[in-house]
């Protein structure tokens, strides 16, 4: 088994992460992590699902680095099935980075570019994925010429059109998002005071 391993350390670290995520992928564990908050059953189910999907993503990466490629890609697909995507349509787990890196390792540059491109553009680990995306792009094309254009094209292709909404400002006025942003470049920032 160790002879076929691709990367022992990646395997062990990913395995640890997977087990840790799985251990807390229950409603009880989630509630225990946030004792002062209340969650609806639906909300809680979604949050637990994310932990399950995270566990599977790490499990896939561990399995790949262990050397069982076929099983690894099955695990990635299973993580994908569990779901848990962000508003922008990208998994909010490391799945696409791992899946893309595994595809890169197997010489499947097109799949690597697809997964890593989505993550680089809109994932939680965009800059991390971009490093591997460059690698995949250069492996496919011989050099990095045109890379910036690829990333820009990916953003355009996958971009979500933002929902409209109406909320109150601090003077009690109803403000519609569409009214503020139409024709403008808009930064929509979510925060809370600490």
């Amino acid at each position: 088994m160790f002879e076929t391993a691709i990367d022992l350390e990646e395997w062990m670290v990913a395995d640890e992460h997977s087990l840790a995520a799985l251990e807390v992928a229950t409603p009880e564990a989630y509630r225990a992590d946030y004792p002062d908050r209340e969650f609806s059953d639906e909300d809680l189910a979604e949050r637990v699902q994310r932990r399950q999907a995270t566990a599977l993503a790490y499990d896939g990466w561990a399995t790949y680095n262990m050397g069982d490629t076929e099983l690894a890609f099955e695990r990635f697909a299973a993580a994908d099935d569990v779901g848990s995507v962000s508003y922008l349509g990208v998994p909010n787990t490391p799945l696409y980075t791992f899946w893309g890196r595994a595809a890169l390792g197997e010489g499947d540059f097109d799949s690597a570019i697809e997964f890593l491109g989505a993550e680089a553009a809109f994932g939680n680990d965009g800059s991390g994925a971009e490093v591997y995306l460059r690698e995949a792009y250069a492996a496919k094309n011989g050099d990095e010429e045109g890379f910036d254009e690829l990333l820009w094209a990916t953003r355009n292709e996958l971009a979500t059109t933002v929902d409209d909404f109406t909320l109150l400002d601090y003077e009690g006025n109803e403000i519609s998002m569409a009214n503020v942003r139409t024709g403008k470049v808009t930064l929509l920032a979510f925060w809370f005071p600490t």
């Binding site: 503020v180 942003r181 403008k184 470049v185 930064l187 979510f190 809370f192």
Partner: peptide, 9 residues
């Protein structure tokens, strides 16, 4: 033509 909208969650 740049706007910022901050939403306090």
């Amino acid at each position: 033509g740049f706007e910022v909208i901050a939403i306090e969650a």
